[in-house]
């Protein structure tokens, strides 16, 4: 009996290891290739024949990369905090408060979930241009917090609050707490896992934003990371692959490290979004 179980386990481990390859290899390849001389990028070797780190200093020479890193980071943090606030408020109201026109308004908000950003980018660009806000970070902050990208967060928060047992709120109301008090003292603290999920989704979304920065931003010191990644080219516009990979490594590795350290809270927070579907 015992032997049979372990045989099954060996098979499972084998399967998991094979399945892992396409998930792990690209990251491995990205990190090691960033230290290869450019002539070796297309070779089959798993490790560089000689390690070079000059690509990393080149990244900072060719672009204001530190500044760009800061741009991406602070935008993502503000967007994350802002989205959590807007989504928690709206999600709670749509789930727990009854007010006239509620369903219609919810449908109105949900429209944003259905619109790819390419669809509305021209009118939005005109809007921000008329406000004199192009080549600033405002469009990358305001639109995600209040516009279409926020809708998924509202949806997640609503699904969470809907499943909250009503007894908790009843008791608080008996104690004389108003709506705002109930939300702030009771519901919000309970929603931490869902808020965590929202934070992760939102941070990644902002961190990955590609089309919008390209359209709105025009000077290198305003660029965000994904946009900067495509800028490592030689004089003739040919991409410098190893420098690109060094920059890509620097954008990916810190996030991965944070994830590995905090992964339990991370994944379990995320998991809460799906349970109540």
């Amino acid at each position: 009996m015992r032997r049979k179980v372990s045989k099954r386990n060996v098979a499972l481990y084998g399967l998991l290891c094979v399945l892992c390859v396409p998930f792990v290899f690209p990251t491995w390849w990205m990190v090691t290739s960033s230290m290869k001389p450019i002539s070796e990028i297309f070779s089959e070797s798993l490790l560089p024949s000689e390690w070079t780190f000059s690509t990393y200093s080149q990244v900072f020479r060719m672009q204001p990369f530190g500044q760009q890193y800061w741009n991406s980071l602070y935008i993502a943090v503000i967007v994350t905090v802002g989205t959590m606030a807007v989504a928690a408020l709206a999600g709670y109201a749509f789930a727990r408060i009854r007010f006239p026109g509620q369903n219609a308004l919810f449908v109105v908000v949900l429209t944003g979930l259905l619109i790819p950003s390419e669809v509305t980018i021209v009118p939005l660009f005109q809007l921000f241009q008329s406000l004199g806000l192009t080549n600033t970070h405002w469009p990358l902050i305001i639109v995600p917090i209040f516009g279409a990208p926020c809708v998924l967060a509202i949806f997640i928060m609503r699904q969470f609050f809907i499943a909250l047992p009503p007894e908790l709120e009843e008791a608080a109301r008996m104690d004389g707490l108003g709506r705002a008090g109930i939300f702030y003292r009771i519901a919000l603290p309970l929603s931490r896992p869902a808020l965590g999920a929202v934070a992760i989704f939102t941070f990644l979304h902002s961190w990955n934003l590609y089309l919008e920065p390209i359209v709105y931003l025009s000077t290198p010191d305003m660029f965000t990371l994904p946009q900067a990644l495509t800028q490592f080219v030689d004089i003739y516009g040919g991409p410098m692959f190893n420098v690109q990979l060094a920059a890509a490594t620097m954008t990916a590795v810190p996030i991965l490290v944070v994830f590995v350290l905090a992964q339990r809270q991370f994944i379990e927070g995320l998991a809460h979004t799906g349970v109540k579907g």
Partner: peptide, 17 residues
């Protein structure tokens, strides 16, 4: 960036910039 240069330029023009 040279890649997509004209596209970015016309987007700026379309947006009034």
């Amino acid at each position: 960036p040279a890649d997509g240069y004209t596209t970015t330029l016309t987007t700026q023009i379309a947006g009034g910039n």
